[in-house]
Simulated assay, not measured.
Amino acid sequence: MRVLGIETSCDETGVAVYDGADGLLAHQLHSQVDSHAIYGGVVPEIASRDHIRKLAPLVEAALAEADCDGSAIDGVAYTAGPGLVGALLVGASLGRSLAWAWGVPALGVHHMEGHLLAPRLEPDPPDFPFLALLVSGGHSMLVAVEGLGRYRTLGQSIDDAAGEAFDKTAKLLGLPYPGGPALAELAAGGRPGRFDFPRPLTRKPGLDFSFSGLKTAVAYALRDAPDEPGLAADIARDFEQAMVDTLALKCRRALRQTGLKRLVVAGGVGANRRLRAALAELAEGEGVSLHFPRPAFCTDNGAMIAYAGYCRLAAGESVGPEISVRARWRLDELKPPGDALGCSAAG
């Protein structure tokens, strides 16, 4: 089965083609970073309009890259939520229309399910079950993934997500949008240990996250520390370390509580090099395997939607002619398909 996947949940327009026998055939991505940078964050109306301009050409480019046309597509998957409603409707409208025109089934995919399954596109894919750390601009979650559609949320952020805390802290430091990569670059030149920032909720039992206080600690440090060369880099370095320590500790706690032997990391923050190094050390110490998607698949992309859609479409799922999206959609509302026969791991 060959599936066209469309991702338009926020500020990336992604289109990909996934084949059950041959793996990922095409991957096209347009980022709107430059359009939103002058505003310091995503502007929903600008995002929606840019998706309208870019999506159809990207579909054409993906089909050309896959060396096929609509007649070779067996199903269409698109992100149906969670995300910005206007942006989601662009992808859902075109995806459902293409499926109707081509006479193939269509399916709305949960954005987070796409992220959870993205590491299964790699050459060494994780088998079920596994523990997933999902860290992005809008989500920080620890999820026990027992199979397709069988997700158990163990902990999540009660306020700012990890990526959101990165962006807000970067803004405090006067860094450009998007803040996460800019802060990590600045932190590389900082001196460790100058600031003792908190590791939130690590002294209490449980697996939830809270990063708003960490961001506030940075604001106080900027207010109280003498303004001298290297101050911003030192703050960035210790903020990043506090974030990494917190995420790693929660992963260790979750691995020990669940007994799972595979750790998957997904979402945009999963591209952070210091986090990757810390989790690699953790995995070695705990005797578990560690799996990341390639950096291009950490952020939003069409490949993860094409693969997640393939898994469910191949198992017989589809939607009717209606076009429906959801700004909010809890991961634990998902159910496994009747028969997940199509969800093989292939790169």
Rank of each mutant, 00 (worst) to 15 (best):
I6H: 13
G23V: 10
H30V: 15
H30D: 13
V43W: 07
V43F: 09
A47C: 12
S48H: 03
K54F: 00
P57L: 12
V59D: 12
A62Q: 05
A64F: 02
E65M: 14
G70R: 15
G86W: 03
L94N: 08
G95V: 14
P105K: 13
L107D: 00
L116K: 02
L117M: 05
R120Y: 11
P123I: 13
F130H: 08
L142A: 05
V143I: 12
A144S: 15
V145Y: 07
V145Q: 00
T153W: 01
L154A: 06
G155M: 06
G155W: 05
A161I: 12
F166P: 09
D167S: 06
K171H: 08
G180L: 05
A182C: 03
L183N: 01
A187C: 13
A188E: 14
P200L: 12
P200V: 12
K204L: 14
K204M: 14
P205K: 08
L214P: 03
V218C: 06
A221G: 14
L222E: 02
R223L: 10
E228P: 06
P229L: 13
D234W: 15
D238I: 13
M243E: 10
D245G: 06
A248S: 15
T258Y: 11
R262C: 02
A266H: 00
E281R: 14
E281T: 15
A283P: 09
V288D: 09
L290V: 12
F292M: 06
F292H: 12
P293N: 05
P293G: 03
A296V: 03
T299R: 02
G302P: 09
G302R: 08
Y307Q: 09
V325K: 04
K335Q: 15
